[in-house]
Design a protein around this nucleic acid. Structure first.
Lengths: 248, 248
DNA sequence: CGTTAATTTGATCATCTTCAACATGAGTGG
DNA sequence: CCACTCATGTTGAAGATGATCAAATTAACG
């Protein structure tokens, strides 16, 4: 679980990054990877609660999560906030800004370090590397897929289905990075989960209890243990797919 | 309202297209436009109920709507269907396929004609025209924006807000093509609207009646007349923005 | 016109929200 | 090390919004 990075030693190299297989430059050969690295920037790690960008900020770059996690929050001037998604290591975020500046705020849920991918630089490199350009389209298309699956989830599924789909999505995302798919610790609060799933925090709390009572999970605060993934998946009508398109 | 096209005379030319300002090649100069046109294809118009592509189809191209309209439907193998969006003249669709084949089906709601934009061709041209490449990113980012606004709508807003936001979105989209923003005819059924908004068809019907009774609209089957747009917008807390990011 | 599909309206029911109280727990200063 | 506090999470009871079931009405189309 310990992902501490020895900062002084970190020299930005996608080639050495354990998350490279999940990230934008996946599939590039060593030479192209080097060109790609040249435009990628580092950032000082964010502390819990700090943001990578805020709604209203001008758009400059996409970000990749190296470690930690964030919530992406849409905050309309008038109304209440809506969490659009959570970003975990190996995942890209920041797409909300490409259009005409950021409409969301990206808030770190814990100590989080990022790579910065300036879109101008990236797309210039990409114009010389067709496979990278295509990958960039795919990454954006993936974002669209995720959001669309989420629409299905919100429009059609019950509260219990939503929570189960959420847990299964997290499970897959942990698994894709080599962590346990059954035992993990949530980095977000009940309130955040509820907001994301379009529910009240109390409902989420009750659902955790219910799933625990039903023997599907063991819930201890933010520590989650899923007892039988196929079982859980089936029980909720495999809306596992919802939002799990995540990191392909 | 009559958008009949004299078919024999149609020669594909984005330069002559009245929708060019809304479409992908907007902002290109005449020369670049010509290069763009070269890769754009035509399709025989779809009849009501026919589809441009179906879930499971291999991805080849994005589509632009010349006339008519479509619903984009996500159909998971098991569960029920979910309408992800409606596409109207000047708008692009087909992004659901870029990742790894189409996950949605695009069904014409009326007689509908399309332009076909093969992504390989487009991205090749785009790699030589940076502004086009950037525009393509923006179009995809716009799709993300729309979906995310829709997430907010589904997660946080009441049934009445959702319907009002939907109508305001349609209103803007009609207006952007030069049609009345207050008087228009829906091309989709109550059932489709309900599905899209995550509601029951009966609820949508009741809401139309209620808004009519309240004097905000005149509803006559699929003919809608909005009496006071700012009024409607304000009454629902300007979630007008939701989904109205549509055609920028 | 007759037949079927779409829409409207009514009545009842379920899920989820809201309000409220209570429990737990991490962090802080004595 | 212990009390205190603020944030987070849990649980209960009542209420509301929207779903579902059922029937009536209207519109669409051959």
């Amino acid at each position: 679980m310990n992902e501490v990075i020895d900062l002084p030693r970190v020299r930005l190299s996608c080639r050495d990054c354990t998350l490279a297989e999940l990230c934008l430059p996946r599939g590039l050969d060593a030479q192209d990877m080097e060109r790609f690295e040249a435009v990628v920037g580092q950032r000082a790690p964010l502390k819990r609660g700090e943001s990578a960008y805020r709604a209203g900020d001008q758009f400059n770059a996409l970000f990749a999560v190296k470690s930690g996690s964030l919530k992406i929050v849409m905050s309309p001037p008038d109304g209440e906030e809506q969490i659009i998604g959570f970003s975990m290591p190996g995942e890209l975020f920041g797409f909300d800004g490409i259009q005409e500046g950021h409409t969301c705020t990206a808030v770190a849920l814990e100590r989080t370090s990022l790579c910065e991918l300036p879109l101008d630089g990236i797309s210039e490199v990409a114009s010389q590397i067709p496979s990278l350009n295509r990958e960039l389209y795919k990454v954006m298309a993936n974002e669209i897929s995720i959001d669309q699956s989420m629409l299905l989830l919100l429009a059609r599924r019950s509260a219990e289905d939503r929570l189960a789909a959420f847990l299964l999505s997290l499970s897959r995302r942990f698994a894709s990075r080599g962590f346990s798919e059954t035992d993990f610790t949530l980095s977000m609060s009940r309130h955040d989960i509820a907001n994301y799933l379009g529910l009240a925090a109390e409902t989420v709390s009750r659902l955790f209890s219910r799933l625990d009572d039903a023997g599907l999970l063991t819930v201890n605060g933010r520590k989650i243990q899923i007892h039988d993934i196929p079982d859980l998946r089936q029980r909720v009508g495999d809306c596992a797919k919802a939002e799990s398109t995540a990191v392909n």
